[in-house]
Simulated assay, not measured.
Amino acid sequence: MFYRKTKEIDSQFEAITTLDEVQIGGLKQTILIRGENTNNPLMLFLHGGPGTAQIGLAPKFQRDLEKHFTVVNWDQRGAGLSYSKELKKEDLTIENMVNDSVELIQYLLKRFNQPKLFLIGHSWGSVLGVLVSQKAPEFIYGYIGIGQVVNMKEGEKISYEYTLNKAKESNHKKALKKLAEIEYNPLDMKYLGVQRKWLAKLGGSFIGVTMYNLVYSNILFAPEYTMKDWFVFIKGGKFSLDSLWEQLMDINFIETAPKLEVPVYLFAGRHDYQVPSIVAEQYFHTLECPHKEWIWFENSGHLLNYEEVEKFNAECLKIKETTLTPVR
């Protein structure tokens, strides 16, 4: 389902709502662009997962952002509306995804005649966010990391230990039984499914949003995805996870990205043990960059931009104003 819609608000600027197929990395990929004024700065979201495409999920949470930014959501290669059965596992590499991201940024800047944009990476998307900031800092006003991945092996160990300890503390017999039945192995998808299920039930995944508001209401009401698209969303999510997860285990930005040439803002959910905030905090303290800020979201887990929407939007607006307001 593809549509393009633009409308004039007044004689000085134009709103935009458009769902487009664009050629990125030699592949047809889909982007959703929404905003009340195309002269506003661009904000590009790099979704999590791998494979958790967010064109069908994010727009209803981003309405206020659209007043101040031209917001771009992108279903990455192999995910959501950018999934294709022609893709092979070897087509999904971190290097390819980084190159796609840079190519998309260049396309957007040219299309909207803008010099730079604000880049947001969530979870898996935060891996791309750091690598893109490292590769093409000249295109980025500032990088915002949500649920920032830093060291996957360390983070997965902490996540498992948190889940097990919470099950013991609450004497959750079913959780303890299911966790005892699996061997710790973050490369095993069966293990990962069990651990993530009980992590969510025990409060270490998200706490400030319900599954209905996050997913089920979108299945019923989101205009960007048809029912068929939601089935493809599931297929693309599994394909992306299977293709990229093992590659993620080699990520350790404390060693490979100790310095970035863009301002960095790390947004952290106090209750996030899916990608534990404690690891991102270690990175924050050692990271060298022109400017950096650490912002806690006290009532959030891993999905803080959906859990504390007003605070998230306000922090983004604050970054825009401090970045783009001329110094007198």
Rank of each mutant, 00 (worst) to 15 (best):
L131K: 07
E103V: 01
A200E: 15
E138D: 15
P115H: 07
G125P: 14
A175Q: 03
S126K: 03
I144V: 13
Y191H: 08
Q148E: 09
G204N: 12
A175K: 10
W124N: 04
G142L: 10
Q148W: 03
K190C: 04
L192P: 06
L128F: 14
K190D: 15
N113S: 14
T163A: 09
I105D: 01
V150S: 00
L128Q: 12
R196W: 08
N185R: 08
T163P: 08
E103W: 04
L131E: 15
A200F: 04
V130E: 00
S133C: 11
V150E: 00
G208F: 12
P186C: 09
S205F: 15
G147N: 11
V127A: 05
F112A: 04
S133I: 07
H122K: 09
I158R: 03
H122Q: 12
Y143R: 02
L192G: 11
I207D: 14
G147M: 09
K173R: 10
S170I: 07
I105A: 02
E181H: 14
Y191D: 08
E183D: 06
Q106A: 05
W198N: 08
K177H: 04
K157L: 11
Q114V: 15
K190N: 12
K110I: 12
G142F: 10
K153R: 15
I146Q: 13
M189E: 11
V150C: 00
Q134L: 14
Y160G: 06
E138H: 14
K135N: 06
K153Q: 14
W124T: 07
F112D: 05
V132L: 00
L199G: 12
E103P: 02
V149K: 00
K116C: 05
T163L: 08
S123M: 04
V150W: 00
L192D: 06
V209W: 14
I207P: 11
L199P: 09
I182A: 03
L109T: 06
N151E: 12
G145S: 11
A136E: 14
E103D: 11
G129P: 10
N171H: 11
F206M: 04
I158V: 15
K178Y: 04
K190Q: 08
M152H: 12
G121P: 07
L108W: 08
V150D: 00
P115N: 08
N165K: 15
Y107P: 00
F112W: 12
K168N: 08
K177L: 09
G155F: 09
S205T: 10
K177I: 03
W124E: 06
A136W: 02
W124H: 03
I146H: 04
Q114K: 12
N171E: 13
A136C: 07
G204V: 10
G129K: 09
Q148T: 12
L108Q: 10
V149W: 04
L179G: 06
L109F: 09
H122D: 15
E138T: 05
Q134M: 10
E181A: 15
V102F: 05
V209Y: 13
V209T: 15
K201C: 01
Q148L: 10
L104E: 05
Y184P: 13
Q148Y: 00
A167S: 01
K157Y: 03
R196T: 12
E156S: 11
G129N: 06
V132D: 00
L108R: 02
F112N: 01
F206I: 02
G208Q: 03
